[in-house]
Simulated assay, not measured.
Amino acid sequence: MVKKSVVLSIVGAVVLTIGVIMAAMSILNTDSADLNADDPAAMETSQEDVSSEFQAPENGDEGASTSDVPQRPDCPPGPVAGVDLPCLGGEEAGDEATDEGISLVNIWAWWCEPCREELPYLEEISQSHPEWNVVGVHADANAGNGAAFLNDLGVDMPSYQDESNLFAGTLGLPGVIPITLLVVDGEVQEQFIQPFKSAEEIETSVTEALA
């Protein structure tokens, strides 16, 4: 009898311990679910901020309609290095075409951080070298974000819109940005597959390539 009582006591203690553990786990799971439900928007916003700032959106954004695209400067008449593209936030206007003379064509996107740093330097070059056609190609489907991005930076450089990777695909360019092309009379003379760090670096690189 003594041994049987001891066994029953041990079994009862084990059962009680298991019950306590299960109850504690249930409480913790409930608290965790409530915590996540309190502010799901904050978690979602944090993830969106990271993806939009440092990498291209995985699924891509749908292109905005013309009425949704902020106004931008008009573009010189195309094509650009032989590729026909629409003007981002503007129309094609002027007498001198992009593929006439010397052109600098910068490929960028609204989510690209190196582009954010580089584009103001290209704007400087466009002002200091009016004899060069300095234009951009926005390599993303969301034209509205692209136009707003340039306006926020205070960059007036005209840019074309490429929502389907037509430009890079036609010219066989590597799948990276930013890329700056030196185009002479419609022919690509040089590819600068790097972000420039200053207007002086751009000027030196182009001058040497033209020599």
Rank of each mutant, 00 (worst) to 15 (best):
A211V: 11
I107G: 06
F196H: 00
N151S: 12
E96Y: 01
L166S: 15
T30I: 11
T180P: 10
S164E: 14
A93M: 09
L8W: 08
A42C: 09
V155Y: 03
L182E: 04
V2Q: 14
T17Y: 11
L104S: 02
E113I: 00
S164N: 10
C112K: 06
A33V: 07
E91K: 13
G12K: 05
A109Q: 11
D95T: 15
D31M: 11
V135Y: 03
A24W: 02
M157G: 03
E187L: 00
I107R: 14
Q127D: 03
D156H: 08
P195K: 14
E100L: 13
I202N: 08
L173P: 02
I21Q: 13
E118K: 02
P130A: 07
V176Q: 13
T204Q: 11
V183F: 00
G12V: 07
G172Q: 07
D152C: 06
D38Q: 04
L16F: 00
Q55G: 15
P114D: 13
E201C: 00
A97I: 02
E100W: 02
E163C: 06
G136A: 10
A93H: 11
D38R: 15
A109K: 07
T17M: 15
M25S: 05
P40E: 07
L153D: 13
Q191M: 10
L119D: 01
E203K: 03
A13T: 06
Q189P: 03
N145P: 09
E123F: 03
M22K: 09
P70K: 01
L8Q: 09
E53K: 14
I125P: 01
S51G: 15
L166E: 15
P86T: 12
G90I: 10
L88H: 12
E201P: 00
S159Q: 07
Q191N: 08
A97T: 10
V6Y: 12
Q55I: 12
D84H: 06
I18P: 09
E91M: 10
V15N: 02
E44Y: 15
D185G: 01
G90D: 09
D156M: 08
V183S: 01
I102T: 01
A42P: 03
W111V: 00
D74M: 06
F196Y: 07
E200V: 03
Q194L: 04
L28S: 12
E123A: 04
V80I: 08
N145R: 04
L150C: 00
C115F: 07
Q194H: 07
S159W: 02
K4N: 09
E100K: 10
K197V: 11
G101P: 04
E58K: 12
G186W: 08
Q55T: 13
Q55C: 11
N165F: 08
A211D: 14
L150D: 08
G172T: 08
D38H: 04
S67M: 04
S103Y: 05
D34Q: 11
C112W: 01
E113M: 11
N29F: 10
G19C: 05
F167E: 14
V135D: 06
S32A: 13
A147E: 07
S164L: 14
A141W: 04
E163I: 15
F167K: 08
K3S: 09
V11P: 02
V155T: 05
S128D: 02
L104H: 04
